[in-house]
Structures are given as C-alpha cells and as structure tokens.
Amino acid sequence: MRNISDVIEGYLKQIIELSEMDHVEIKRSEVAEKFQCVPSQINYVIKTRFTTDRGYVVESKRGGGGYIRIKRIRLHEKASVIESILERIQNGAAQNMAEDIIFRLLDEGVVSKREAKLMLGAIDRQTLLLPLPKRDEIRSRILAAMLFTILYEEDQR
C-alpha cells in the first residue's frame, strides 16, 4: 500500500509532466487540502523527492501570493550528465544521494530498471559494511566505476 508521501509525489510528478510550461507552480495549502494533510507534509515531499539529484529545481515565494515552483531538469546528453555526476561524487556519496542519482538515471533512460537494481544493491549500506566516512568513499568509487562503464559503453556506440 502506498503512503501519503508516495501519492503526493505521484500527483506532483503527473502535473509537472502534463504542464505545457517548463515548470509548475503550486500552492502548498491547496495541495494539502486536496490530500487532507498538513502543509508540512507537502514540504516534506518536495524536500525529499524533488531534489537536484533527482532532476528538479524548487523555488518558493512566501506570503499571501506565495507559491512553490517545481521545474524538471531534462538531461541533454548522457555523457555530460555522467561527467557532472562523477564530479559531484568525487568526495564521497551518502546512500540517499547515490540512490537519488540512480533513480534519476533510471527516469532519464540512461540505465534500465535491471541496471538500476544492480547499482542500488551494490551501493547499499548493508552491502558496504564499513564505518563512515569510509563507506561513503567506497560507495562513490563503486558508483563512479559503474558510471565510467556506462560512459565507455556510450562512446563505443
């Protein structure tokens, strides 16, 4: 069974995809009312599910005419995306960050569902039974190796 956060995330993604503009503006209170939840639940979903690593930019304006603007960032070229990710993870990668990156690669079609599952299994904290910060360093090295493989495969086509 899906929880309220999953339902809100799905709704917001749907209106973003259906939008004819490059972004969507929502009122937190209106979305909270639609799902009969507190406005802070909307904040939680936006903060955790609409991150840069997942391919979104979020802006907000407070006040009576305030809004939350969510913009989907589309990848232009797989190689440039992978290179920017490699740059971002060079100092280590926490599990949430690595998962967000993998989910974005899946959403953008850079990796298949099967490849994403393999990647998630390889970088999981249960797989990497090491103390922090060593675990985050090893996770970033494993993720980087996988990304280099994808990048190399892309160059061979």
Score class of each variant (00 low, 15 high):
32 A>F: 08
34 K>T: 12
89 I>M: 02
115 E>T: 14
136 D>E: 13
146 M>V: 02
91 N>E: 14
120 L>P: 15
105 L>C: 07
79 A>G: 09
68 I>K: 00
109 G>I: 09
69 R>D: 08
110 V>H: 08
48 T>R: 03
54 R>S: 12
60 S>A: 08
144 A>I: 07
99 E>G: 04
104 R>L: 15
113 K>M: 03
59 E>F: 08
105 L>I: 10
129 L>P: 03
46 I>C: 05
134 K>W: 00
93 A>I: 06
91 N>R: 10
131 P>Y: 02
112 S>A: 03
42 I>V: 15
127 T>P: 05
98 A>M: 04
49 R>L: 05
56 Y>V: 05
54 R>V: 10
81 V>W: 08
55 G>Y: 10
75 L>P: 13
111 V>D: 08
92 G>E: 05
69 R>S: 11
33 E>D: 13
109 G>A: 06
131 P>D: 00
80 S>T: 15
107 D>E: 11
29 S>D: 13
140 S>L: 02
92 G>M: 01
29 S>M: 04
142 I>T: 01
79 A>E: 12
103 F>V: 04
74 R>F: 14
89 I>T: 03
133 P>M: 01
129 L>I: 01
83 E>P: 15
116 A>R: 04
37 C>M: 09
65 G>W: 11
87 E>S: 13
112 S>L: 04
64 G>W: 10
66 G>Q: 10
54 R>D: 13
71 K>Y: 12
134 K>R: 02
69 R>C: 08
75 L>G: 14
50 F>R: 04
114 R>G: 01
60 S>F: 07
61 K>Y: 10
118 L>H: 07
138 I>W: 02
90 Q>R: 15
58 V>L: 02
92 G>F: 03
74 R>D: 11
90 Q>H: 10
112 S>G: 11
124 D>Q: 09
38 V>W: 07
125 R>N: 03
123 I>C: 00
50 F>D: 06
102 I>M: 05
94 A>W: 01
60 S>H: 06
53 D>N: 15
144 A>R: 07
56 Y>R: 01
53 D>I: 06
71 K>L: 14
57 V>S: 11
38 V>M: 11
132 L>M: 09
79 A>N: 07
50 F>A: 04
36 Q>S: 15
62 R>P: 07
127 T>I: 06
86 L>P: 11
133 P>I: 02
135 R>Q: 06
44 Y>S: 13
97 M>P: 06
132 L>V: 04
